[in-house]
């Protein structure tokens, strides 16, 4: 029982960055831009968050974490401009531009670490974001309270709130409809007066904000400092979650949670009978293999945004 609870607690810590980054990537992809660069933007977010946290902690103590989060969101937006301008205005191949943005992020962040801290990582911060010991009343519920409301990072609740907001914005507002139209049939959208270029910019910048946030949450909850390996593929797991969740906010949430729990299970598998026969390396593969399986089963049905990855050229019909 203790193992299950500790696994869930750890899963609820790993999942929020995946969920949030997937939600962000959904905005970009729904607007028609493939965002391979989630990984890189998360790296920048994590670096900025860790750095701000280290620098502010002496003067602000526990609030430093939240200022760091805001800084990371801003940094994510700014960094995603690189992808937006190259993929939307300069007509770069979106996958190649995204790859370049990814490769640049690690180089740039570790370089800055060397300039600021004189080493290839940031200095360790002391708290980052702290856990909520127990949510009043809800924390007293047996089992469910232990799992969901005790010793949980607030990031998990923020992920839930963001999922609801994203669902509302993307599927219940005129803005969301227009954004999705740009990813399905940009020329039709343009013909009814939607500004496709602007919508795609908004989509990419929003995904930058979410990825920056996700990077900050990742480093401030699961680590004590930023290194080149802090993000370690989480951005790609988020893309997997987006596909696994069929480009839908609830799907992203479910898939992100599931991938988070499977990672947590992987690190504990050696303690659980039967499961300890499976090497932990294989647990790490689960998200990726499942995503490909889902793609096979949904093949032929149009779940992905139709115009995803296509360069929008107003002159082309």
């Amino acid at each position: 029982m203790d193992i299950i609870i500790s696994m869930c607690t750890s899963g609820l810590m790993i999942a929020p960055p995946i969920i949030i980054a997937a939600l962000g990537a959904m905005f970009a992809e729904r607007s028609g831009v493939i965002n391979i660069a989630v990984e890189g933007i998360m790296t920048v977010g994590a670096f900025v968050a860790a750095t701000v946290c280290v620098l502010l902690e002496p003067s602000m103590s526990s609030n430093a974490g939240w200022v760091a989060v805001i800084a990371a969101v801003v940094a994510g937006v700014i960094y995603s401009v690189l992808l937006a301008i190259s993929a939307i205005n300069f007509r770069a191949d979106q996958t190649i531009a995204g790859t370049a943005v990814n490769l640049l992020s690690t180089g740039l962040c570790v370089y800055l670490c060397q300039v600021i801290f004189g080493q290839q990582r940031t200095i360790a911060f002391t708290t980052g974001i702290s856990r909520i010991q127990s949510v009043p009343i809800l924390g007293d519920i047996p089992i469910i309270g232990d799992i969901l409301f005790k010793n949980v990072y607030p990031t998990f609740y923020i992920a839930i709130i963001l999922t609801v907001i994203v669902w509302y914005v993307a599927f219940k507002t005129p803005f969301g409809l227009r954004l999705r139209a740009c990813g399905e049939n940009p020329h039709a959208a343009a013909s009814v007066g939607v500004k496709v270029i602007r919508m795609r910019w908004i989509g990419v910048l929003l995904s930058g904000a979410f990825a920056g946030l996700a990077g900050a949450f990742l480093v401030l909850t699961t680590s004590i400092q930023f290194t080149a390996n802090t993000i370690h593929g989480t951005g790609f797991i988020a893309i997997a979650a987006l596909i696994f969740g069929k480009w839908n906010p609830w799907g992203c949430f479910g898939a992100g949670l599931f991938f988070g729990l499977s990672q947590a299970l992987g690190t504990r598998a050696s303690l659980i009978p039967v499961l300890n026969l499976i090497p932990s390396d294989f647990f790490n593969c689960i998200p990726y293999i499942l995503t490909v399986i889902v793609l096979i089963f949904t093949a032929g049905r149009s779940v992905a945004p139709k115009a995803e990855g296509q360069i929008y050229d107003a002159g082309q019909r």
């Binding site: 790859t99 370049a100 490769l103 640049l104 690690t106 180089g107 570790v110």
Partner: peptide
């Protein structure tokens, strides 16, 4: 890391 920055800028 400046080398990595240069090579990724080239791809960009």
């Amino acid at each position: 890391e400046i080398a990595q920055i240069i090579s990724s800028s080239i791809i960009f």
